[in-house]
Design a protein around this nucleic acid. Sequence first.
DNA 1: CGATTTTGACCGGCGC
DNA 2: GCGCCGGTCAAAATCG
Length: 323
Amino acid sequence: MSGGEKRELYGYHHFNDELSSFFGQRSESMGGTAGMLDLQNGEPPAALMSFNEFFHGPAYYNALTRAFDVSSSPEEGLGVSEGGKTMRDVEVESNIGGGVTPVTPNSSVSLSSTEAAGEEDSGRCKKDLQLGEEKVEEKGAENDAEKSKKLNKPRKKGEKRQREPRFAFMTKSEVDHLEDGYRWRKYGQKAVKNSPYPRSYYRCTTQKCTVKKRVERSYQDPTIVITTYEGQHTHQSPATLRGNSHILASSSSSIVPPGFPQQLLMHQMPSLNINHHHQQQMDANPSMFLQSLQTPRHQQFQIPDNYGLLQDIIPTLIHNNHP
DNA sequence: CGATTTTGACCGGCGC
DNA sequence: GCGCCGGTCAAAATCG
C-alpha cells in the first residue's frame, strides 16, 4: 500500500443490507448520498495530524469513554442480551434515530458499533469466540473422531454465544484491507448479497487475540471500503511497538488502554460532541450513541454505540505501514 | 519452509 | 421442515 494507496475517510452511504442497517442509512432516509463527502483529493496528512494529536490527549479518551459509557470489557459487558433479541433492529434504530447523520461538508467517516450479543450470529459465535483462543491448542489435541466431524464442535448448548461488540466504519480507499497497525490473517471470503464485491474475513494473528474484522466494498460506491471490527485486541499494535513511540507512549499510559487502535481514532476524530440520547437498555450492555462528533474542520465521525468497540476497532488510517 | 491466502464445504440460526 | 445466508473451517495453493 505504500504505493498509490489512498485511503480516506468517507462519509455515510448505503451498501448492502447488513451494513445499511449498521449505519442506519438508506437513501431515502438520508437523502441519497448526501452524506457522502468526498475527500478524495482532499487532504490527508495535515488534517490527520490534528486528529492524531487530539486522540493522544487525555481529553479524548475521557470523552470517548464517557460517551460510550461502556464497561471496558465487551465480553463481560455484553453478557447479556440473550433475551434474545436481535439487536439488529435496535441497532438500526439507534443509528437512524440517532439521526444525526453525519453530513459533513468535507469528509466524514462513518462509524457504527454494534453489540451484537444476540445478533445474527448469536449461534455461530460458538466457534469463533470461544474457540478462538483455544482452537489452536485444540487442534493439536484433536482426535480423529473430532476431526472427522470437523466443524461440529458443539460448545455448551444453551449457552448463547455472546458476540463481541462490533464497530464499523467506511473508508474511501483503493485497497480493501486497510492497514491499521495490526496483523491480520484472512480466514474466509464470501460473496455479499446484492453486491458484486466479496467480503473478506480476517482474524488478528496475535495469539490469544480474538479480534476479527471483515472488509467489504460498498456496492454503491466501490471506492468505499467498509470495515467492521469485532472484539478487542489483547495486545498492542505491532506497528505501535515498532516505531511510533509517541503512540506507544500514549497507549501505554493509563489514558489509552492497550490494544486501543488509537491510530484510527487519532486519525479521524476531531472533536467529540457527545449526545447520547439513545440508550438501549441492555443489562450490561449499554448502547450509547455518540452521535455526530462534529468536526470543526471537516471530518465527521459518527460513533454510535459503545466505546468498547472503539477501543479496538478503530483502525489506523493514518499511516500506512503495510503487511 | 513457515506464514498467509484461496476456496469449497460445512455449520447453525432464522424466516418462511 | 426446509432453504437461505452469514460466518468459519481447513486443505491446498501460493508467497516471501
